[in-house]
Design a binder for these strands. Structure first.
Lengths: 337, 337
DNA sequence: CTGTTAGCGCCTTCAA
DNA sequence: TTGAAGGCGCTAACAG
């Protein structure tokens, strides 16, 4: 890598500077102190020759290559993008780079992809929202050091950086309750998604905590289209008394609102709609979308912090769960009188 | 990399199988024909030991590591995400992985980042829309094999995969002209952006080709906020007779429409608005946004195709320029009578 | 402080 | 067809 023609090596530098390779290596790594004259000679030789050390050789000697991998189901998901960005920037500040491995939503490939990616790198960030728990647990043990992002994994020896989706849903329900809504619909995400399961748990908890509220679940999805297409089901629910909708995420909420507008359903007058994730677009929809904000970049940065500790041989640090922050905008309002 | 404890090596496998390392290497790489008995013995040993070859050692020997890097100014830009996804998938099908290097919009870091990334990888995909041409030309020569994405670079020895933005703008202007618009405003992107320059060229060409049309340029930006904030300037332009707006990209168009709606300006009745890039959200805005579609994933895939040829020692293949496709939706309409 | 010597794990001639 | 040996480029002992 890194060279077109026959690369110049540390031996060339040593020869030109009239010293041993070890000395060159020393000035390169500033480990021991070296005679200033030699340092200068070596520096000169390096400059003249335009030498750069081979990362491959270094990797072989050190047993690491200052690279981590992030495995994601879909690079086009704004949530993962934000995490990747945060991870990439944080890692870069420690001279680490990030390899991306998009599994294109094929759950059955995730395991192999993760193992392969891990083999090229020093550590792994795993986003595998749909992988069965047991399989993920085995995988995690196999590819350590690793941190799991955006889903719980009870009992596994791995740091987790995630979001308290259940709590977020409860907070959202509270918000709607405060506006007078008692009949709410939750448009669910992908059936196998762990974070959808967490949200559903939040739905249950909210129902249990407040008998006056009733929350129906409508099968949805995770993308704009899914929200668009679920609109009919939502209007049916509305006819049956539902006054507010919580969507799996903002994309679904935005797609839903688009269709509702077409159908002549006014948000929030006829129906309140809330999303989750607080993607940039949420502030720019009409009406502006009430959402639960999730610190995407921060999740990536925290994942790196934990990974760095593990790489350095440190302990498995405490997991973190971010509590989503309610962003009240214009798509939710008081229940119609 | 790839190991926690002392890794097992090809020597361990050889020992257990009772053959030489060379034989193991042979069955691993299925190069020469090997005695079936040996093959079996080696396979068994590999399975029992759970051996996987060291990528670092391989890299050192081969001088490559089956990894390419993509340098981008901002991972959160939907355009680059799409390209990255396409690139990543295409490369993966050839057992290559992609390293991402986000320069966080700091143009002065791009050069160093590119060189560093290139040093870790076999080749580079460069997205550097704001780097001065001359500097980019020098850089490109230095980091080959490389392909430049999404900007022209006349006279450089490098394949380019890009978009004919000028043509796209002209097609868009034609569309608006067909609807009767003669006074158009172009909300420009970042001043240093090469693709903005291309769009401006399209604006000039369109004006030159059709004297009946007049296109004003309004300074904008590249994000939702920029579009939102430029709305006042746009309404002023409208007061001065402008009947249609072309935004630098969809994000700007969407932000602009949001603000226009707030200001009571009806799109497309009072003003037509068109974007560029055709991001997923364009189909879901209210009104649905007319845009110029750009094949994001395909750009990434083509970038990989060219890179692969270069890596294999092939020639610099022809550059490609995609012609954006007009997606007529509801945000553009006939000029008011 | 410096040079010599062994590897890191793998592939690849070269003989046998 | 197989094994032995050298080397990819660098670093880390170990002497000197």
């Amino acid at each position: 890598m890194g060279e077109r023609t026959r690369a110049i090596t540390i031996a060339d530098v040593a020869a030109r500077a009239g010293v041993s390779q070890a000395s060159v290596s020393r000035v390169l790594n500033r480990k021991q102190s070296v005679d200033p004259a030699i340092v200068r000679a070596v520096q000169d030789a390096i400059d003249v020759l335009g030498y750069t050390p081979s990362v491959a050789a270094r990797s072989l000697v050190h047993g690491r290559n200052d690279t981590i991998a992030m495995v994601v189901p879909d690079l086009e998901n704004p949530l993962f993008q934000g995490i990747l960005k945060g991870l990439s920037l944080a890692a870069a500040s420690d001279h680490y780079r990030v390899l991306v491995a998009d599994t294109a939503e094929v759950v059955d490939d995730e395991e192999a992809t993760a193992i392969e990616a891990r083999h090229r790198c020093d550590a792994l960030v795993l986003c595998a929202p749909r992988m069965p728990e047991e399989r993920l647990r085995r995988l995690v043990a196999r590819v350590a050091p690793v941190v799991v992002v955006n889903r719980p994994l009870p009992g596994a020896e791995v740091p987790i950086v995630g979001v308290d989706y259940a709590r977020g849903i409860r907070d959202l329900v509270d918000h709607l309750r405060g506006l007078g809504h008692e009949r709410i619909a939750y448009v669910s995400g992908p059936a196998a998604s762990a974070s959808n399961a967490e949200r559903l748990r939040g739905v249950e908890e909210a129902s249990a905590a407040d008998p006056s509220v009733r929350i129906d679940v409508i099968a949805g999805g995770s993308r704009l289209d899914d929200g668009y297409m679920v609109a009919e089901a939502v209007t049916n629910a509305r006819a049956a008394g539902v006054t507010a909708v919580i969507a799996f995420n903002d994309l679904v909420a935005l797609g839903l609102m688009t269709r509702l507008t077409e159908l002549g359903v006014s948000v929030p007058r006829d129906l309140s709609v809330a999303g989750f994730d607080d993607v940039p677009m949420a502030r720019f929809s009409t009406p502006r979308l009430t959402s639960m904000s999730v610190p995407r970049g921060e999740i990536g940065a925290q994942a790196w912090a934990r990974l760095r500790t593990l790489i350095a041989g440190g302990p498995i640090e405490h997991s973190v769960l971010y509590r989503p922050r309610l962003e009240i905008r214009d798509s939710t309002g008081p229940v119609a009188a």
